[in-house]
Structures are given as structure tokens and as C-alpha cells.
Computed example of a mutant assay.
Amino acid sequence: MAKNVSGRAEEPPVLKPWPKRPARLAQAVVENLTDSIVSGAIPPGSTLPVEPELCETFGVSRITIREAVKSLEAKGLVLARQGYGTTVTPPEEWNLLDPVVLSAAVQHDDELVVLDHLVGIRSALEAQMAAQAAEVATDDDMRAVEEILSRLDEETAVPARFIETDVAFHDRIMQASRNRLGRSVIRTVHAQARTAFLYNGTPDTAMCEQANAEHRKVAERLLARDPQGAAQAMAAHIEGAWSRRRPPNPGPPAS
């Protein structure tokens, strides 16, 4: 029986093999193990099963398992040490900007801790980029923002379309800011957040109309070349929209 970092014996984690052998073997193993780690099925401080067991579970070669473990190490999920096996690291060590890790974290975020933090990051970064856009955006940038805003006006009665155009509106302002790093961070975290039902909620026409009224305030401050006003309008919009669709008492799904 394996031992954890404190030397105590531990029960081996139960891993479920997949019903059909995937094409990209190492990546599929990584995604499966990432989900098991982030969900807590393989808790921090425990050790992964040894190579032969992982090979049997997933039906892959040792080379594939070693490649997968190296990828898990790069994501900060495990630490492989000679004589100690491969140990799951504390959540503080996980790279949440890695799409696979973030996706798993969002999917298992029953108490919305990750999503609350993500919205905070969006609010801070997008507010900064709105201020930058108010200063450096070209006339073409401004026209593009206005054009998307007009499309949003037409789509408030069709929430599914509105949501997609909403993303384009925010992204166009980020482009106008010329802050490529900030835009990359937001695009990474927002893409994963949008895969979660708890993040998206069930917007209706009234919610879309309110969101678009807030979009218009952002656009007005951009056109006025008002950095502080644009930042405040963007932060208020992102935080307000989240407060309207955030479940009041989230909890683990029913078994």
C-alpha cells in the first residue's frame, strides 16, 4: 500500500478506465487524471498509482504514462520524486491559467469560489483595458465598437445570439486597448468559465436589455475619451451582470 508525504498508509485512488480508447492517448490520460485530482478523488498529499497500474487502467504504454505525468508536473498538479512516487500537490500550486486545469476547476466549482475570483479578475483587467482603450483607440476601433453595440440592440430578444455578440463586444474593446497580455489572460479564463452552466445562468430578454444598457455606458465613456469613466462603467457592468445571474445558494449537485 502506498504512503503519503506524512508516511501514513493510504487507500489507493479508484480510477475509471474509458470505454473507448481515445486517439490522443497522453492528453486523454492527462485530462482524466486532472479531473480526478481537481475533483478531490485523488486528494492533495496522496500518491498516484504506480506506472504498471496506470498502464493497465488506461490501456496505454509506460511511455504514454510518463509523458502524461510530465504534463501533470508542468501544470503544477503533481510532484514526482525518486523513492516517493508521484505526489499530488496542494491546490495553491496548481496552474489555473492552464486550460485543462481551469476547465476542471470550473466544472467542480460547486461553491463558485473559482468563478467569483474569475469575475474579479475580469472586472479588474477589463476595466484597466477599457481605460487604455479610451486613450489609445483609433476612430476605426470606435466605429467597430459602435457597430457591435448596434447588433446587440437587435439581439436582446434572442439571448443565445446576444451572449455570443456580448463576447465580441468585450473582445473588441480589449483589442482597442492594445493590451495583448491582458486580452490573452481574459480570453483564456473566460473561455473556460463559459463552459459552466453556473457561470452562464439562464439570461432572458430583460437581463439582456439591462446588460446592453450597461454596454452603452461603457461605449459612451470610450467615445468621450474618458479613461476613468470607461473603467468604472466596465467594472460596474461585469460585476453587476454576475450578481444578477449568480445562483444565491450554490451547492454540490444532487447525487
Rank of each mutant, 00 (worst) to 15 (best):
Met1Cys: 09
Ala9Ser: 15
Glu10Cys: 07
Glu10Pro: 02
Trp18Pro: 03
Trp18Arg: 11
Lys20Val: 15
Pro22Thr: 06
Leu25Cys: 00
Ala28His: 09
Val29Ala: 08
Asp35Ala: 07
Asp35Tyr: 02
Ser36Lys: 12
Ile37Ser: 00
Gly40Phe: 09
Ala41Pro: 03
Thr47Ser: 12
Thr47Trp: 03
Leu48Pro: 02
Pro49Met: 08
Val50Ile: 13
Pro52Ser: 05
Cys55Glu: 15
Phe58Gly: 00
Gly59Ser: 03
Val60Glu: 04
Arg62Cys: 01
Arg66Val: 07
Ala68Met: 02
Ala68Glu: 00
Lys70Ser: 13
Leu72Gln: 01
Glu73Leu: 06
Lys75Val: 02
Val78Met: 01
Leu79Phe: 08
Arg81Ala: 12
Gly83Trp: 02
Gly85Phe: 00
Pro90Gly: 05
Pro91Asn: 08
Leu96His: 12
Val106Ala: 08
Leu112Asp: 08
Val113Asn: 10
Val113Pro: 05
Val114Asp: 01
Val114Met: 10
Asp116Arg: 11
Arg122Leu: 15
Leu125Gln: 09
Glu126Lys: 00
Ala130Glu: 06
Ala131Trp: 04
Ala131Glu: 10
Asp141Pro: 09
Asp141Val: 06
Met142Ile: 14
Met142His: 09
Glu146Cys: 07
Ile148Phe: 06
Ile148Pro: 00
Ile148Lys: 05
Leu149Ile: 03
Ser150Ala: 14
Ser150Trp: 09
Arg151Ile: 11
Glu154Ala: 14
Ala168Lys: 13
His170Ser: 11
His170Gln: 10
Met174Glu: 11
Arg178Gln: 14
Asn179Gly: 10
Asn179Gln: 11
Arg180Lys: 14
Arg180Thr: 15
Leu181Met: 13
Arg183Gly: 10
Arg183Trp: 07
Val185Glu: 06
Val189Asp: 03
Ala193Met: 04
Asn200Trp: 11
Gly201Ala: 03
Ala206Asp: 14
Asn212Glu: 07
Ala213Phe: 05
Glu220Cys: 08
Arg221Leu: 08
Leu222Trp: 01
Leu223Lys: 13
Ala224Arg: 09
Arg225Cys: 07
Arg225Gln: 11
Ala230Leu: 06
Ala231Leu: 05
Ala231Cys: 02
Met234Gly: 03
Ala235Arg: 10
Ala235Val: 07
Ala235Pro: 08
Ala236His: 03
Ile238His: 03
Gly240Phe: 04
Trp242Glu: 06
Trp242Arg: 02
Ser243Arg: 14
Pro250Lys: 02
Pro253His: 10
Ala254Leu: 14
Ala254Lys: 13
Ser255Gly: 13
